[in-house]
Design a protein around this nucleic acid. Structure first.
Lengths: 148, 148
DNA sequence: CTTGACTAGTTCAATATAAAACTATTCATT
DNA sequence: AATGAATAGTTTTATATTGAACTAGTCAAG
C-alpha cells in the first residue's frame, strides 16, 4: 500500500510552511506600530532595501497579491505619508511608487519593535540553519511561481 | 556596518515561506472541487488521516486559526454533510467533530483533483529534498508555537 | 453550596484579499 | 491613421479571518 498523502514529505513541508507563515504573521502584526499591517510593512521593507521606484503592478507581482490588494495597501501607505505615488511620465497607464523619509522612519520603528522577537529567535536557531534551507526554499518558490 | 535586515537569512526564509504559502494556497484553491475551500479541505485531510473525534477548540489550535474561524469552517463542512458535530456527553461546553463517509469521499476527490499538480511537482523535486528541510521546518514551527 | 476564574463555542463588526468588471492607455499590425 | 490585443490601475462584490463581546458550562477554593 502506498503511503498516505499526509505522510509524504512534500505535503508535510507545505503543512509546516502554512503554519509557520501564520505564526510569523500573527506575531509581527501584534508587534508592529498600530496602523501598520504586515502587508504594508512588507512594502516598506522592500523599498528600504532596494530604494528607487516601482510600479504597483511590479509590487503586486513581487508580493504575490492581486493588483486590487496592492492598490489598497498603497493607498493606506500613501494616506500615512509613507510612500509617494506619482504618474509615470513615460507611460500614462503606470504609476511610480517610492518611499518617503517618513516611510523610512516607520520602517526603522517597525524593525525596532520586532527586535526582541528576532533576538530570541536567534538564540534558538543559527544563521547557518536558515542559510542551509534557503536555496531549496528559493528554488521551490521560483518553480511554483513559474509553473503557475 | 551590520547587514541590512532583509539580507539576513532568517528574514529571507520567512519571506520565501510567505510567498510559497500564498502560491500553494492559490493553486490548490483553484483545483479543489467547488464549495471546498483550502481551510475546509485541511480539516478533511486532518480527519482522513487521524480519524476519531476532536473538539473545535483542538482543531482551531492545530490549524492556528481563531475559534471563530473554525466555527465558520466547521459549519460549512457540516452543511455539506462532510463532518458530524455532536455535543460532548462528558462536558457540556464542548462539541466533538468527526468525519462522515461523504467527507471521506470529498477528501479522496480532492486528492484526485490535486494529483496532476503533485505529479509535476515531484518531477521537479525529489522526496529527499523535501525530507532534508523537514526537520528544521518542524523545529521552527514548534518553537514559534511554544514561544508565542 | 457559593463565588469567581476559567474554558468552549458562537456571534458581530472590521478588515484584508480575491475575482471580475471596468476605464484608460499603449503597442503592434495593417 | 485605424483597429484590436494587451497592460495598468481602480472599483465593486463576495468571502475568510481576526479580535472582541457574549453565553453557557466547569471547576476549584473558601
Amino acid at each position: 500500500m502506498s503511503p498516505a498523502p499526509k505522510d509524504r514529505p512534500d505535503v508535510q513541508v507545505f503543512t509546516e510552511i502554512g503554519i509557520i507563515d501564520q505564526l510569523v504573521t500573527n506575531r509581527l502584526e501584534r508587534v508592529l506600530p498600530s496602523g501598520l499591517s504586515y502587508a504594508q510593512f512588507g512594502v516598506l521593507v522592500h523599498f528600504a532595501r532596494r530604494g528607487g521606484q516601482e510600479s504597483p503592478a511590479q509590487l503586486a507581482k513581487a508580493f504575490q497579491v492581486t493588483k486590487g490588494a496592492m492598490t489598497n495597501t498603497l493607498q493606506k501607505l500613501a494616506a500615512q505619508g509613507f510612500v509617494r505615488i506619482e504618474d509615470d511620465a513615460a507611460d500614462g497607464r503606470k504609476k511610480q511608487v517610492s518611499i518617503t523619509s517618513d516611510g523610512l522612519e516607520a520602517h526603522d520603528a517597525g524593525l525596532v519593535a520586532m527586535r526582541p522577537q528576532m533576538e530570541t529567535l536567534r538564540s534558538a536557531f543559527t544563521d547557518g540553519e536558515f542559510r542551509a534551507v534557503l536555496p531549496f526554499l528559493t528554488a521551490l518558490r521560483m518553480w511554483l511561481d513559474d509553473n503557475r
